[in-house]
Amino acid sequence: MLDTTVDNMIEEKPKIIARDVKVVYGDKEALRDVSLDVMDKTVTAFIGPSGCGKSTFLRCFNRMNDTIANCRVSGSLIYDGQEISAHDPVTLRARIGMVFQKPNPFPKSIYDNVAYGPRIHGLSKNKADLDGIVEKALRRGALWDEVKDRLHETGTGLSGGQQQRLCIARAIATEPEVLLMDEPCSALDPIATAQIEELINELKQSYSVVIVTHSMQQAARVSQKTAFFHLGNLVEYNDTGDIFTKPSDPRTESYITGRIG
């Protein structure tokens, strides 16, 4: 009894606190007054139909929206006790890693792909140290056994699922605290998807994972918390089980039963 309370208390500590976040592209409002807490050591899923703002919201967390010229973010996003806009984007992105929709390995060797982040952030003291970091990241990315004999072959030569796991390994090589995943399985077949989902399950032991997905089944399988977005609004945010069994908002119910979307 006591154990579970302590456990709950740790889990309940929010990693990122979003309050009234609003995103505008040019004069088009993409996201309207979204408030939610992202928990530590939890998988949080963002679901919703295309164009509902879920990816936009995800990209606020590591300031990837900065790279889009006419995009403006307002409201409050607090990470590590500080506004995200006050963080230096370089260190912020080292601590909040990201995996993209399409596998995007650099046209370099597998080793250099994983070593990219540690190198630019100076995380290793010497070659042996870097080797260790690369191996650890590839092991956690569940790719080590498949590639350990060909670390110096190009990363673009791997299969789609392997490429995506390489990208995950690359993202966790910088030891981030939060891992953002923007539809990481949308370009993969069911077997590769299952591997990635298993990997996400492993990763939540040490990270807070936020995953944007089109697949409600995937959200149900991997996440503990689910947020449903619709037309730029956060409709409902709750435990995944509750969202899928007893949604409180009629729009959520329509979406998960397949009536809208």
Partner: peptide, 8 residues
């Protein structure tokens, strides 16, 4: 994006 996402 991949490179920026890693903090480059």
């Amino acid at each position: 994006d991949g490179s920026y996402g890693l903090g480059a």
